[in-house]
Design a protein around this nucleic acid. Structure first.
Lengths: 138, 138
DNA sequence: ATGATTTTGCAACAAAGTTGCATTCCCTGT
DNA sequence: ACAGGGAATGCAACTTTGTTGCAAAATCAT
């Protein structure tokens, strides 16, 4: 069984050609993808709506996570195994968006430092996004 | 001259009733606002397009800053004076979004800790967003 | 292989954001 | 105070983005 199929099976999802194709696109990309990026790669094969629904399903199953940004474009990236701890997704690495090439990458090696919230606030999830120039654009 | 007018004048913007009204909405709100929030407060007074353009202008002038989020809704908050250092906006406080009431606030008292990026990466801006439950919802 | 269930595509819709242009408003100099 | 030039606004039209219902097709378990 292929890597792609086992990812789907592990999340108790049926294996369809559409899901396999979208997973393949993520696996062959080294940066985070917006809906638009995926659509432009397989709009002739799959419907726009299918892509929306597939991304939604992948999110819920913790196969991908979404990355906050100030430009109002939701980008998704594959979760690595460490992402999913006891069914609950926990992303503790920094995301970097390059102002030059526009690509967003997960900096797996940079962990988000702890912060002390004011009294009364409870933390459930934390995200850190850095903008700047990436190593290939510098 | 009112506080609102001097904010506009300091940014070399002409003082119009629309801009004053939108600034007023920000000043009287203690949380970050999405375009929709503003529209619902003054849709009868000003056109949707005007609100878009005004927010865009305020962003460019550094009067407001936008706050990243994973829910794909751009929210804006007033910059305090510390935000604008030599014309360039620099936001170094943590943002908190409450999962219960949905409000996003600037935690001015919590500064973003330094992080070490991998070799070759240059940092221009850093954002930290915490999700959880705020003190009024707990 | 067959039937139940899930997924997909299509169509239609709703929401969000953009653009061009004519009108109105604001600011400056007199 | 007011006239003229430039900027801001409103309107209409449009594009993009995301959602929903339903029938057809694909997947999975037996």
């Amino acid at each position: 069984m292929s890597q792609i199929e086992s990812i789907l099976k592990n999340s108790t999802l049926s294996v369809t050609t559409g899901r396999k194709r979208i997973l393949e696109i993520f696996l062959s990309s080294n940066n985070a993808l917006a809906h638009q990026d995926i659509e432009s790669q397989c709009a002739d094969e799959y419907d726009r709506v299918t892509i929306y629904r597939t991304l939604q399903t992948f999110l819920e199953k913790g196969i991908i996570h979404n990355i906050p940004s100030t430009d109002n474009i939701t980008r998704y990236a594959l979760c690595n195994e460490a992402c999913i701890v006891s069914g609950h997704h926990h992303d503790n690495h920094v995301h970097f968006k390059c102002d030059s090439c526009g690509k967003t990458v997960c900096l797996d090696e940079v962990t988000i430092p702890k912060v002390q919230l004011p009294k009364g606030y409870t933390m459930k999830e934390i995200n850190m996004v850095v903008n700047g120039v990436c190593k290939t654009c510098r």
